[in-house]
Design a binder for these strands. Structure first.
Lengths: 133, 133, 133, 133
DNA sequence: GTGGTCTAGACCACC
DNA sequence: GTGGTCTAGACCACG
C-alpha cells in the first residue's frame, strides 16, 4: 500500500499515518487479518521515527482497527471493525458542523456541499481517492 | 450571541471561538456590518486571555470574515463574504476524506453520511445549532 | 503527595506511577479538581524522563481519572470518577484468578486470602497503606 | 487438561501457561506426581514455540511446583507444594494493593471487592474455572 | 526480529 | 511555562 506523508503539513505525522491507514482499510486495500509492516520497517520506508509509527499503530489498536498479534505482528482487525460509537458520532457532528458553517458562509450551496460529501465517500470506497488520476 | 467554550477540548480555544463566530455569521445571527464586542470585553466575558480573542479576530480578519476599524472596532464583513478559495476547497476535501473514510470503515452507509451532512448544513442555516446537548 | 518509584522493579515506571496516583485518589490524598504537578516538574522530582510521566498522565486521562485543562494543567477528574467498566471487571477477575490460584496452591486458606483482600482495601482508604508505619 | 491461550493478550504466553497450570494444580485437575506432557508435545498442541513451554516449565520447577526427571519427564511436585514465601506475600500484597485502589476509586465497595475475591477463590478450588465465557 | 519501555534533547502551539 | 510532537538511540522481553 502506498503511503505519502506531508512533512510540511500542520497535521501531525502520526495523524496523517492514521488517516491513510484508515483509508486503506475503507478502500479494501488493507483487508481484515492482513499483516501490516513492522513498526521499524514502516518507519524506515517513510523516513520517519519508529516512535511515530508506533503511536499511530497503538492508537489504531486502541480504537479497534488493528490487532497486535504475538508473532504475527500487527494485523488489520479480523473480527469486525468497530461500529459507530458515540464518540465518533460526536466527532463527526462537530467536524461537519464547523465545515458546513464555513462552507455556507463562503456561499457554497447545500446541494454542492452534500454532493461533495457523497462523491468523496464514493471515491474512498472505490479504491484510490480523488487525487492524481 | 451566545458563545460557549470547552476548556478541556483538544481544539484550541481560538479555533473554537473562530468556529462559533463563523456559525454565527452562517446562521444570520451576526449580520454583515454588525459590530462585535471588543477584544477586551469578549475576553472578559468568556474568561479567557486577551491574546486568544485577538488571535481569533485576526485570523478571521485575515480570511476576510471581519473588518477591523480604528473607530467602529471590529465588525462583520459588510462587503460580501469571501468565496470558495482554493485553500478552502483543499481543506474541505482533506477533512471530508478523513471523515468519510472512518465513517465507511465503521459501517455507516453513504446515504447516512450524506444525510448527516445535509441535516447539519441545514441546522446551521436555521440557527438551531450550537448547543444541542 | 509522596511518590516513590522502584527503578529495579520489573513493572514499568509509568505503571508504578499510575498505581501510586490511583492510590492517592483512592485514599483521598488527591482530591477531585486538585491540580497535579506539571509533567516536567514531576519528572524532575522523580528523577525520570518527562515522557514517562507524560505517558502515565495520558493513560490516566484516557481512562477518565484525570483531565487536562487548558491553563490549569492536569487535574484530578472533578466530574466523578469512571465507574466499574466491563474491561475493569475482566481485568479484576483475571488478576484475582491468577492470584487466588497460586494462593490456594501454596496452602493459604480462603479465609486468609479474603482477609488479606479486605485489610488491604481498608488500608488504602484510610490514607497511607500498610508499609512503613 | 484443557489449556487455552490468548495470542492477542498483553500477558506473555509463558505467563498465561504458568497461570493455567497453577490453576490446574489448585483445582486438583493436576495431581501431585502426575506427569505433564513433554515440552515438545505441549508446544505442538498449543501451536506455540518450544522455548515458550520450556520457559514456563522451568519457572514452575524453579518455584517448586514441578519436578523434571530424566526418565519420567515433567511431573507435578509430589513432595508437597511450596508454601507462602516472603516473595509471594509481597507480590500478593502489591498486586492486591493496585487492584484494590482502582476498585475503590471506581466506586466498588469493600464488601463487593471481598466477595469477588472469595467467590473467585472458591471457583478455582471447585474446578469450575477457566472458561466462563 | 518484534513490540515495549526509557532516556535525552529539541521545537512548537497555546495561553 | 504548559502539554504535544518528533527525533535518535538504547535496552529488554518475547517468541
Amino acid at each position: 500500500m502506498f503511503i505519502e506523508l506531508d512533512l510540511q503539513s500542520e497535521t501531525p505525522l502520526y495523524t496523517q499515518l492514521i488517516d491513510q491507514l484508515i483509508e486503506g482499510i475503507a478502500s479494501g486495500e488493507l483487508k481484515p487479518g492482513e499483516p501490516l509492516p513492522s513498526v521499524r520497517s514502516l518507519a524506515e520506508d517513510l523516513g520517519i521515527n519508529l516512535h511515530t509509527v508506533n503511536k499511530s499503530y497503538n492508537l489504531l489498536k486502541q480504537e479497534g482497527f488493528l490487532q497486535v498479534h504475538r508473532k504475527k505482528g500487527v494485523i488489520v482487525q479480523p473480527d469486525g471493525m468497530p461500529g459507530v460509537t458515540q464518540e465518533f458520532e460526536e466527532k463527526l457532528r462537530r467536524t461537519l458542523r464547523s465545515l458546513a458553517a464555513e462552507t455556507a458562509v463562503r456561499g457554497m450551496t447545500e446541494e454542492a456541499f452534500v454532493q461533495q460529501s457523497r462523491s468523496i465517500y464514493r471515491d474512498i470506497l472505490t479504491n484510490r481517492g480523488g487525487e492524481q488520476r
